[in-house]
Nucleic acid binder design. Sequence first.
DNA 1: GTCGTAATTGACGAAGCTATCAGTATTCCG
DNA 2: CGGAATACTGATAGCTTCGTCAATTACGAC
Lengths: 210, 210
Amino acid sequence: MSTPTDEQPLGRRERRKLETRAKLVAAARSLIAGQGVDAVRINEITDEADVGFGSFYNHFESKEAIVAAVVEAVASELGDAIDAATSDLDDAAEVMAVAHRTIIDRAAAEPTLGWLLVRLELSHDVVSTALGPYALRDLQRGIAAGRFHVDDQAATLIALGGALLGAVRAVLLGRVGDDPAITHAALALQLLGLPAGEAQEVARRPLPRG
Amino acid sequence: MSTPTDEQPLGRRERRKLETRAKLVAAARSLIAGQGVDAVRINEITDEADVGFGSFYNHFESKEAIVAAVVEAVASELGDAIDAATSDLDDAAEVMAVAHRTIIDRAAAEPTLGWLLVRLELSHDVVSTALGPYALRDLQRGIAAGRFHVDDQAATLIALGGALLGAVRAVLLGRVGDDPAITHAALALQLLGLPAGEAQEVARRPLPRG
DNA sequence: GTCGTAATTGACGAAGCTATCAGTATTCCG
DNA sequence: CGGAATACTGATAGCTTCGTCAATTACGAC
């Protein structure tokens, strides 16, 4: 997910410019998480970023443009997190469980990220677009390994994504019991056709390098 | 879900008033379905309803007020549809499958309703609030009958609702195969712990009084 | 037919938001 | 050091939206 990051020999001017841009994106991110895209005003973004109003238009053409930047940032951040958490695993079912647990744990630890995910999903399909490819890969590994019993792959991914998003919302709203990540992971595996007992066992395995 | 509807002896004046109100709600419903709550302007609603701008404030205090009316209408409409479709059934698993199929089929037949559901869910929790009680009742029947294997009821309902909403969105976006309602119903039953074969069988049963 | 009541209407003032732009401050480079 | 380049700034013009209100219209009672 991460690019090789070719960089560094930048003048002070360039650095300040990027810094301003980063402040704007961070401010937009936090405000969108709190209020949703539509409710956020551009002057709120510049105030939060502690930057002159006019600066906004030095970096972005419109609100849509900065939203796109936020979406991209969130997508790559989550993608990296999933990669890091699952790269050491062999069992396809465990990969799926850990991927879901990662998302939910991160949303719980960083509600701003969680709300962003929820609030951006409707308008920008973040889950399908950004996470879909990972999910599809993991799904097919599980099918190939004979662990999942799946009839319609696309429909399964949709249900999986919807259930995940529901779980994230529930966590953010505090409507959950203990360790919602494990609970949800077990449900996801059950959805994929694992027997209840096996789903529980896989979902409960300790996270790698935790 | 439906109230006994005590009514009829109304003068023409009352009827016209209710008619205006109904036109406003219908217009709001269609516009919200198309653009989401935030994007809808009050003058758009009155234009669509073919009513003077000022009339809006004879019936509703604010946009929030009319949105609440729309939410209530949608909730009772769906509730009635589910009741009608499942009241003749004995098998708890079949009840759950038919309930989900009903929602998806209705969303497919009436995209306005589907989009409303999706667009209102974020801001108003329609699925949890309006459909949750039905789902909980059916879930507990299935558990009592020993057909579902459920660990955490609340988490299961959340996953079920999220998956349903995802399926509705997919249908509206055309990203589906044949008979998405049956496909999704089978997934829902699998999520509830039914073995894959059994889930398929129950999901495929013909709808009652179809 | 006349009058009182209540709903409807659209124009208007107030408030908010966007995008621009002319001016200022900072950095780069010869 | 000095001039060019570039990012930053906030006031402002123009537009959109909201909620109110005085005038108008439709209804129903007598």
